[in-house]
Design a binder for these strands. Structure first.
Lengths: 228, 228
DNA sequence: CAAATATAATAGTATTACTATCATTATATA
DNA sequence: TATATAATGATAGTAATACTATTATATTTG
C-alpha cells in the first residue's frame, strides 16, 4: 500500500494508557515489540518482564505506559480498528452508488491485511493476526460492561455502525443491518482463523477468499446482485 | 423440554479428563459446580482451589479428574456441543424435505437454550452462557493445532459438518457451505453476546431473535425462500 | 476383614502480575 | 551552564496462581 498521508494519527482513548506510547521512543518500542512478541508466543505467554528483556528495558518502565497487558491489548486492537476505519472512510468516501460503496467496504473489512508504510513502528500484518487470534479475549470478560462504559470499544463500535449505515443505504427495508455488519466483521476474523487451524470448517482458502464469501452473503441477503 | 430418553450419554474424548467425572459422585459435583462458578465469576477468576472450597472438597482431588481448568473448559464445551448435536439429529432425523430440515436445524443451533431434565447435574442454560462467553478462549491458543490433532474439538467439528451437509442438500451449487455453517454456529454465539453487552451492534433483542436473523440470512444466500 | 482405591490434608515450588523505593540518566529551561 | 524536572533503570518484595508431592484417612470391593 502506498503512503497516502504523512500526518494521519490514530486517536485512542487515553484511559487505555498511563503515558501515551506515541510520545516517546521507548513507548513506540513497547508497541512495536509487543506486536512481534504477542504474535510469536500468544497473549497468554506474553508478559511485561519478557517484553522488557526483549527491548532492553525494565519491566517497571513498561508499567509506566500500560497498567497491564489487557489494556495493552485493548490499545493495540483500538489502533487496528482505527486504522481500518481510516481505510474504510478513505476508500468509500466519494462513491455515489450505495451498492458499489458497500461492496468496496466489505472488501476493506474482509480482505487480508497489507503493510502500511505510514506507520513505521507498527506491523499491520502481524497486528491483524493478533486481532484474529486475541481480540475476542479483550471483550469476553466479566469487566466488559464497565470497560464499554469507559469507552474502550468506541472505535470498534463506530466501525460496525459505519458498515451498518452503508447496509441501510443499500436496502432500507432490510431488518438486520447491525447484525449483518457485526457478522461480517467478526465473521471475517473467524474465517481467517479457520483457514489456519480448522480448514474443514471453512470454504475459504488461498483461492477462495473470505471477501468473496462475505460479498456473496451480504448481497444475496440484501437481495441485490453483486457487481463483482 | 421433555425427558425424551433416559439413557442418552454424551461421549467425550477421554484425553480431556484424567478420571471420568461421570464415574463418581465427586466427579459430577465438580462438573455441576464448575458450571455455576464459571458462569458467576468468569473463567479467568475461576480456579480449582475455589471450586474445592465451594464443593467442600480438596483442590488435589479435583486435579485427579482434570489436569487443569483449560481441559475442564474443553470438557464442558464438548459436552455442550455433543448435547446440541443430539438435539440436532433428533429434531431433523425424519424430515424428508431438505429445506424444512435445514430450517429446523438452524432453529436448533441458534435458539436460546432450554433446560434438559435428562441430565440432572448439568444446567444447560448456564452451560450455554459459558459457551457464549468462554468458548473462543478454548481454541484461541498457541496449542490449538496439537489439541485439534488430539481430537479435543471433534464434536464441534462434526456438528459444523452436519450443518454444512444439510446446506449442501438444499443447494448443491452453493459454493460456501462450510463457511456458512461455521458462520451460523459461531455467529449465533456472537449475536447472543452482543444482545447482552453491545446492543447497538446487533439487530436482535427479546422480540427479534438471532434465529430469525440467521434463517433469513441462510435462505436468502442460498436463494431459497424461507417457509417460516 | 483385608486390600485396593478414592479422597483429604498439608506443604512446597516456580511463575505471574504487579507495587514500592531508590538510583541514575536524559532533557528542558532559567 | 547549572539545576530542576522528568524519564528510565535496578532491585526487592508481595499476594495469588497453578500446579506437584507426600502422607493420612476414608470408602469400596473381593
Amino acid at each position: 500500500m502506498e503512503k497516502l498521508l504523512q500526518s494521519v494519527r490514530i486517536t485512542i482513548n487515553d484511559k487505555l494508557y498511563v503515558k501515551d506510547p506515541e510520545s516517546s521512543k521507548l513507548g513506540k518500542r513497547i508497541v512495536e515489540e509487543s506486536i512481534l512478541m504477542i504474535n510469536d508466543m500468544g497473549f497468554e505467554s506474553f508478559n511485561f518482564k519478557k517484553l522488557g528483556q526483549k527491548i532492553g528495558s525494565n519491566e517497571s518502565s513498561i508499567y509506566r505506559y500500560f497498567e497491564n497487558k489487557h489494556k495493552l491489548l485493548l490499545y493495540l486492537a483500538s489502533w487496528y480498528w482505527g486504522w481500518l476505519e481510516y481505510q474504510l472512510v478513505f476508500a468509500t468516501n466519494n462513491i455515489p452508488d450505495a451498492s458499489t460503496k458497500l461492496e468496496r467496504a466489505i472488501e476493506i473489512m474482509t480482505q487480508a491485511t497489507e503493510i502500511d508504510l505510514a506507520f513505521t513502528h507498527i506491523n499491520e500484518v502481524l497486528l491483524s493476526k493478533i486481532v484474529i487470534n486475541e481480540y475476542s479475549k479483550s471483550y469476553l470478560t466479566k469487566e466488559v460492561d464497565q470497560e464499554n462504559k469507559d469507552g474502550y470499544f468506541v472505535i470498534y463500535k463506530r466501525l460496525v455502525n459505519r458498515l451498518s449505515q452503508m447496509i441501510k443505504e443499500v436496502n432500507g427495508d432490510y431488518p438486520y443491518p447491525a447484525s449483518l455488519a457485526s457478522t461480517l466483521i467478526e465473521g471475517a476474523l473467524h474465517q481467517y482463523f479457520l483457514i489456519d487451524h480448522f480448514s474443514s470448517l471453512t470454504s475459504c482458502d488461498a483461492k477462495t477468499t473470505p471477501t468473496e464469501y462475505f460479498k456473496h452473503l451480504a448481497f444475496n441477503t440484501l437481495n441485490i446482485k453483486n457487481n463483482g
